[in-house]
Write a protein that binds this DNA or RNA. Structure first.
Lengths: 236, 236
DNA sequence: TGTACATCAGTGAACGCGCGTTCACTGATGTAC
DNA sequence: TGTACATCAGTGAACGCGCGTTCACTGATGTAC
């Protein structure tokens, strides 16, 4: 999708086939993982002969790069939409301005569970050779910016650590977002902690353990919720 | 290694060749990732012909399973050794009994950085079909048990959460370790948080960001250090 | 409106490759008397 | 100590497969006059 303004019938057709190829590619990735992706297999599934796909993609690598870019865009969109929705819902009176982290967190988890292999295509095991093209960095920064917009400007514990100072010097990763240092750290920690629980869940490392990953995710999230103090207060 | 008591020369030879095969396998995995592992390529590197390896492994799958098991064992050993070393060093007088989490954390990070693809073989993107054999679960539990031994029995914030109760009901994952619920949660969180930072670092997701992953790792770790209160106190 | 031409989607054959795996066999190493 | 036998490591040929990718080509779709 988002192949930009197609006008002539031929252009429309091309765009449609390109996305059809991608759809089959995602299906194949979800079934057997990204390393099993094969142009010939996709062609066969579409009722085409192998070389036909070379009208649409220069090769396997270009297709995969396209998929990765789409995955990033999809996550960025999901994040932005969740952010806007939560922003609108509390337009009336409620607590703090801006979207809240809980909404973003659940959007992230939903997006990941929706297609675990798509999550892993972005955040999973890297293939030693591959280096992401530059325009992907931009989308990653956009994701970070959305996250920073949702972070309370004064996080629960707001003392400035050495790490904060270090991050301050390297704000580029959030597109030079003008948030205070403690907020930068907060967003980064939000990201790494949720990724920690989520990636282990998606990889199935909790299945042998019997308990519910959602509870673990929620517990990690609670640490960021501004409504509850940082030391959990409920007891059982 | 640890092929168990080899006595006759032939047995010793077999064991040696088996580990030599594994060594080449690891080298290949480190270079091109686990999905690129090929029996023929290993044989060629060893100066053997392809089918020769079938004297030592029933096939590619058995070799990979062996590698995974070795990786788990290696991590368990690293953990245990770090644990014992830290235990001994403070035999004199110092603070709490038992090893401390900082030592374990750095052992983990060192082990991971030593061979990122080995880390990913365990904790990385799962291949949709594969299911780990049962004896691996045992090693994973042993790792958890070592971790639990190092957790302070009364963690920094010790109120009992609903998650604690849930974990209490599913203690199996730690080999029925007799730690209090809050400690179970603490160990689990230790694991997921460090994995969060570490896996993103190993996957190279911080390289475009310019800052030092070690600082982020240390910051996450600080939250578990009993010497420092949970809210960081230093300022800059 | 029809004709001539250009564009482009898709085909089928082919190339070269490396993979996992089997099989019948050779030659060396160990064992038993 | 030497001889007969069994064990087993390793070979080379072969099978069947699917991969990515190229190339010359046909036939349909669009464009220009």
């Amino acid at each position: 999708m988002a192949e930009s303004g197609a006008t002539t019938p031929r252009e429309r057709y091309r765009a449609q086939v390109r996305t059809e190829i991608k759809d089959h590619a995602w299906e194949q990735i979800a079934t057997a993982g990204a390393s099993a992706l094969s142009l010939n297999a996709i062609a066969k599934r579409m009722g085409l002969s192998g070389p036909a796909l070379y009208r649409y993609y220069a090769g396997r690598d270009e297709l995969i790069t396209g998929l990765i870019k789409d995955a990033y865009r999809s996550l960025a969109d999901t994040f932005r939409q969740a952010s806007e929705a939560s922003d609108a819902s509390k337009a009336g009176a409620s607590s703090a301005p801006g979207p809240d982290l809980t909404t973003l967190a659940h959007a992230l988890r939903g997006w990941a569970l929706d297609d675990p292999q798509r999550y892993f295509l972005i955040y999973g095991t890297p293939v030693p050779g591959y280096h992401a093209p530059d325009d992907i960095t931009a989308i990653a920064q956009q994701i970070m910016a959305t996250l920073l917009d949702a972070c309370p400007v004064t996080p629960p514990d707001s003392a400035v650590t050495p790490l904060d100072a270090h991050l301050e010097d390297h704000r580029q990763w959030a597109g030079d977002h003008p948030a205070p240092p403690a907020t930068l750290r907060s967003a980064l920690t939000f990201w790494t902690r949720l990724h920690g629980v989520l990636s282990l869940e998606l990889a199935g490392h909790f299945t042998g353990m019997g308990f519910d990953p959602a509870l673990l995710f929620a517990a990690e999230l609670e640490e960021f919720s501004p409504s509850t103090p940082v030391g959990r207060t409920r007891s059982a």
